[in-house]
Amino acid sequence: MDEVEARKTIVATLEGKKGKSKFYLKDFYAMFPEEKPRTIKNIVNKMVGEGTLEYWSSGSTTLIGLKGVGKQAGAEHED
């Protein structure tokens, strides 16, 4: 799998989702049904490190979304 293409697919898919800003890791796996979950997990975590995506955590579960998208950052003055 071409990692550059995968990154584009991830960003485009998330941008295309209306009314939802945070996603489970499994939602990312579903974008690449042929790939091993571990490969996708590594790309997603790398994209968080680079600042394209960001984590949101309840403490027990982690969700992932495009950085700065959604209510949280503004509401908590973390943006």
Binding site: V48, Y55, S57, S58, G59, Q72, E76
Partner: peptide, 15 residues
């Protein structure tokens, strides 16, 4: 929950 954390980590900090 929350979005806060420390750089490079996706755990260990709970907003």
């Amino acid at each position: 929950g929350g979005i806060v954390g420390v750089f490079g980590y996706g755990g260990g900090v709970i907003g």
